[in-house]
Nucleic acid binder design. Structure first.
Lengths: 205, 205
DNA sequence: ACCCTAGTTCAACATCCGTTGATTTCCGCC
DNA sequence: GGCGGAAATCAACGGATGTTGAACTAGGGT
């Protein structure tokens, strides 16, 4: 009976979670090759599927990218949770949260795909800017500014963003050896102090 | 007379600085498209030259990249100059130097090409790691460590590298608005303090 | 006056990529 | 028990890319 032939066409029996398999493969490929280098064919191959099926589900590589980079963290929840406990130690809490996300999501981390694609792909750069800056750091800096009277909250948010992006690039992409190997709490203290400083220190030249 | 025909083949009269034109166009393209997206054809087009001539000079896109990313700063000169004036204000001097280089080289900055290409191109990542880390930051951290007794100089160098790469990405590639518009000395103070801290603060968690 | 060499172009190849249209198979509903 | 539509595959197209080999032209040394 050819009903178990693995090379047959047509619909497969059961509740095939194929769409999710494609999204997962896409996240993995985008995360460590970037938008341009990650090919639809390779993603389809990883998901064990024909490239045309990817287009059937998403229509366009671009749309697939946007769907795959949807972030599993809701800023509307995370920001109040960070700021709610007060300004003291806010930097460390933010860094701890971020390192945690980086470590547990690993290969499938949308943030990695976003950062890697942002170079040379303006749409990805915009998505990263909007998520990191407008959704997370701007509200945090605004809250701090409201409570401490610190000036230029937007610039403070940008300063924080530059360090956070730098962490992702240096640790996950360049894989600077001591940084990649360092104990997480050591990094929380080192980077947390920087973030805290950017949020509160005087910015007059 | 067809001797002035602009579409003719063969050698052009005079000392045509064509090789340099190609290198310049390559730097520009690599700097704001990255290794993969910058095509040999586009580079040749910018230089007003046939793509085959690029291959004739450099043999391979990869070799062209390495040649174009040769850095115009000699670490053997810059490091002693920075450290020689003492540890005080070292962070600010380093940041000021870097922002100066970023601003004056602009479109043709090899550092930009290196960072943008480092995502998704392991060779570029290695070049960036070697230049920034091993050639500049490791010696600086080692010198500081020797004079102050600070521990873990390599980790300190990696921490500095993560902030410097973050500056380049956030300011030149993501173009975070307030960061791109900020006065240079404001950034020197903000970032200089961070670098100084990474070089000297206690790293115990 | 001659030839060698370096500069330069042209045309083409092989490969790979995103996308499309036709076709086949099966699930779920009436 | 049939049937529409969703899931899946196949084969192909059109375009772009890095690279190659042959051809042509001019300058410079002898």
């Amino acid at each position: 009976m050819p009903s178990i032939d693995p090379t047959r066409r047509g619909r497969r029996p059961g509740d095939s979670g194929t769409r999710d398999a494609i999204l997962d493969a896409a996240r993995r490929r985008f995360a460590h090759e970037g938008f341009r280098a990650a090919t639809v064919r390779a993603i389809a191959g990883d998901a064990g599927v024909d490239p045309a099926l990817v287009m059937h589900y998403f229509g366009t590589k671009q749309v697939l990218f946007v769907a795959a980079m949807e972030f599993p963290l809701d800023p509307a929840q995370v920001v109040p949770h960070l700021v709610g406990s007060g300004i003291d130690g806010l930097g460390e809490r933010l860094v701890r949260l971020m390192l945690g996300v980086l470590d547990e999501l690993g290969d499938t981390n949308p943030m990695l795909g976003l950062v890697r694609s942002a170079m040379g792909h303006p749409d990805a750069a915009r998505m990263l800017r909007e998520f990191l800056g407008e959704a997370i750091l701007d509200p945090i800096a605004a809250a701090v500014s409201e409570q401490t009277g610190a000036d230029r909250p937007r610039l403070r948010a940008d300063l924080c963003a530059s360090q956070i992006v730098g962490i992702i690039v240096a640790r996950q992409i360049l894989v600077l050896p001591e940084l990649a190997a360092a104990d997480r709490e050591t990094l929380v203290v080192a980077y947390g102090g920087t973030i805290q400083r950017y949020l509160t220190v005087s910015l007059a030249p």
